[in-house]
Design a protein around this nucleic acid. Structure first.
Length: 352
DNA sequence: CGGTGTGTTGAA
DNA sequence: TCAACACACCGG
C-alpha cells in the first residue's frame, strides 16, 4: 500500500512560522532596470534582437516544481504556505532537493493527500517519523538539510514491539510498518533498590534471572573477573557493563559501567529497569527503564524563562525530561520555543 | 559582500 | 494559496 503521506497531523499546539523579526517597510523601488547577475546554471541568457548583444535576462528562471522558487544566485528556495503566511523551507543547490523538501513539508502540514512533486516521497518509516515531530522541527531539519540524517538515525533506532513471556504483544509503537519491527523478549524487570542506585556502583541481578538469562561460565577465572555484556538502550546507545558473581554476597551483579547508566538516566530507587533480548538471530540485548509506577508525592515543576516570559509546566515527568539528558528523546519545549520565537511578528501585527 | 529569506503584489 | 519580484538585512 502506497501511502506517501501521513494520515492526519494533530496539530494541537498552535504553531507559527512567520518571520523571526519584523522588518521595516521597504522604500518604493527606484531603478527597475537593474540587471541581475545570476549564478551558473541559474541564469537564462537571451539574445537581444535590437543590437545583437548577448544580455542576461533579469528574470529569474522559474522552477517546474511546486513550492520551489529561484534565488538570484542560481540556487533554489523552497517554501510552503499556511494560514496566509509563507514558511521558508530553506535554499538548495538543486531544484529537486528543494522540491523534495517541499514535499516533506507538505505531507507534514497537510497530510497524506497533499499535492506533492514526487510520488513516494515518503518511505514507510517516514510516516511515523513525521508524526513524531512537530512542524517546527521538520521545517528546521529541512532548512538545515538534516532531515535525511535525522530520519536515518530514527530508523536505526528500530522501534520495536516487545513480546512478553507469553508471546503476547505489549509493545509500543504501532505506526511502524511490520517489516521494520524488531521483536524483543522481555527477560526480566527489576525495581532498583536504593543500593542499586547508590554509591555501591552496582546492580544486583536477582539470582533466578541471572542464572537463567546471563549464565556465567562456571567455576573458572571468569567467576572472579566476570564478563563484559553490551546492552542497547532506546536511543541506540550501547551500554557495556561488567557482569560478575560476588562470592562475598553470593550475588550476581552489574558493576563497571552501571553507575554511568544510573547517572545518565537519573535512576532513582523504585524505578524499574527492564532487560530485553531480541528474538531474532542476533540475540541483541537491550536495557530500558521507567519511572516507578504509582503516584508521585511531589510533582516536578518545570519553569522555563523565555524572552522574559515564564512558562510553567506543572506535571509529573521523568527526571529525564527535566534535564533533557536523554539524547534521542525529543523535548516538546523545543517546539514551544520555536513557536514563541516565530510568533513575535504575529504579535506585532496584531498590535498594529 | 554574497546570499538568504522577507516584504509585497497580483494571479489563480 | 501560490510564484514572482525586489531588496533589506544578516552572517561570514
Amino acid at each position: 500500500m502506497d501511502s506517501s503521506c501521513i494520515d492526519e497531523i494533530s496539530s494541537s499546539t498552535s504553531e507559527s512560522f512567520s518571520a523571526t523579526t519584523a522588518k521595516k517597510l521597504s522604500p518604493p523601488p527606484a531603478a527597475a532596470l537593474r540587471l541581475y547577475r545570476m549564478g551558473s546554471g541559474g541564469s537564462s541568457v537571451v539574445l537581444d534582437p535590437e543590437n545583437g548583444l548577448e544580455t542576461e535576462s533579469r528574470k529569474l528562471p522559474s522552477s517546474k516544481y511546486k513550492g520551489v522558487v529561484p534565488q538570484p544566485n542560481g540556487r533554489w528556495g523552497a517554501q510552503i504556505y499556511e494560514k496566509h503566511q509563507r514558511v521558508w523551507l530553506g535554499t538548495f543547490n538543486e531544484q529537486e532537493e528543494a522540491a523534495r523538501s517541499y514535499d516533506i513539508a507538505a505531507c507534514r502540514f497537510r497530510g497524506r493527500d497533499a499535492v506533492v512533486n514526487f510520488k513516494n516521497v515518503l518511505e514507510d518509516g517516514d510516516l511515523a517519523f513525521l508524526e513524531a515531530h512537530s512542524k517546527a522541527e521538520i521545517v528546521d531539519m529541512l532548512r538545515k538539510h538534516t532531515y535525511a540524517d535525522e530520519l536515518e538515525q530514527n530508523n536505526k533506532r528500530q522501534l520495536f514491539l516487545s513480546v512478553d513471556a507469553n508471546g503476547k504483544r505489549n509493545g509500543s509503537s504501532t505506526t511502524q510498518n511490520d517489516k521494520v519491527l524488531k521483536t524483543r523478549e522481555v527477560l526480566f524487570e527489576k525495581a532498583v533498590t536504593p543500593s542499586d542506585v547508590g554509591k555501591l556502583n552496582r546492580l544486583v541481578i536477582p539470582k533466578q534471572h541471572a542464572e537463567k538469562h546471563f549464565p556465567l561460565p562456571s567455576p573458572s577465572p571468569a567467576v572472579t573477573k566476570g564478563v563484559l555484556i553490551n546492552f542497547e538502550d532506546v536511543n541506540g546507545k550501547v551500554w557495556r557493563f561488567r557482569y560478575s558473581y560476588w562470592n562475598s554476597s553470593q550475588s550476581y551483579v552489574l558493576t563497571k559501567g552501571w553507575s554511568r547508566f544510573v547517572k545518565e538516566k537519573n535512576l532513582r530507587a523504585g524505578d524499574v529497569v527492564t532487560f530485553e533480548r531480541s528474538t531474532g538471530l542476533e540475540r541483541q540485548l537491550y536495557i530500558d527503564w521507567k519511572v516507578r509506577s504509582g503516584p508521585r508525592e511531589n510533582p516536578v515543576q518545570v519553569v522555563v524563562r523565555l524572552f522574559g516570559v515564564d512558562i510553567f509546566n506543572v506535571t509529573t515527568v521523568k527526571p529525564n525530561d527535566v534535564v533533557a539528558v536523554c539524547g534521542g528523546k525529543r523535548s516538546r519545549d523545543v517546539d514551544d520555543m520555536f513557536a514563541l520565537r516565530c510568533s513575535k511578528k504575529q504579535a506585532i501585527i496584531n498590535a498594529l
